[in-house]
Design a protein around this nucleic acid. Sequence first.
DNA 1: AATTCGGGGCT
DNA 2: AGCCCAGAATT
Length: 350
Amino acid sequence: MTDQSADFATRLLDWFDQHGRHDLPWQVRDYPDKHPYKVWVSEIMLQQTQVKTVLNYFDRFMQRFPSVESLAQASWDDVAPYWAGLGYYARARNLHKAAQQVVAQGSFPHTLEGWMALSGIGRSTAGALMSLGLQQYGVIMDGNVKRVLSRHQAIAGDSMSSPVVAQLWQLATVLTPVQRNADYTQAIMDLGATLCTSKKPLCLYCPVREDCKAYQQNRVLEFPQKKAAKATPVKHAVVIIIEHEQTGQWLWQQRPSEGLWGGLYCLPIVEQTELAAFQAQFSLTTGCSLPTVKHSFTHFSWFLTPQVFKVNAAQHDALQHYFAASQWLDKQQAMDKGLPKAMLKVLGQC
DNA sequence: AATTCGGGGCT
DNA sequence: AGCCCAGAATT
């Protein structure tokens, strides 16, 4: 360990002791905690997701699935409602699957490679689990670390590109101490989340500003560098609200486990160009349209126009067969299944 | 090494 | 509307 790295870690740890976040619900207070389960669940929830958002889900999830065994034993339909609205639903499916893997193995992984062998766990999450979960040596590379280190060393180039990522991993590995490794891991994330923020960094309070190259050059906001984002495509589709004439229930379908909103219940969605054919196939009389809802994903924007069709008993069997994995539910039943945010927006129009 | 995958919140 | 967030998996 070089003098510079010791100095960096020491200053960061001293700052962390006074100003870091010590009361997050997944932080283990009584070391050593033999079970990394809590940290694991938190790390998966926190992938690409802000702490504030996760706080609304974590305790409820842990109360329902307090151990890896309880999660492994549950069915997917039990798990989905506890993740609904959190996004990136593949994380939940991977977590559920990995819990079953852990139970089958008989114990949690105890190496970086062991963690990475579980689905949904890459290098950074595995490092976090070694560090925060097992109190062993671990190195992470999340958005916070990228921002802190690329500023501190004024690293040029797209921070998502392979050479820069490799450089950041190398730097992170050199700077991460063996002593108090878990505290350091938490500290550098806390620094990124509370001081070295993307838009309004509070450099005057930063414990490592004196040797921060971006700060010295008055270029803090220029890092991390990234290539220009390309415009997100726009799509239009129709949300099919099929209302049972007698019961008033709607036809919902559980989406296939792969892909968008995988494993969640949604109203059927068809491309606008397919609507006429769909309507003709089932002899549906045109129902009323509801106000269009806009929903943005990372890779495209969706303009969803809900349209209501009332169907009689003769039509409803054919429709249920046409939409795979579908069932008739009233509003509350559907919400209890767990819905993505876009479906809640649609319900808000009704 | 580069591209794809894929939700939600905040300003 | 654009950007950010405790990235992973695939090609």
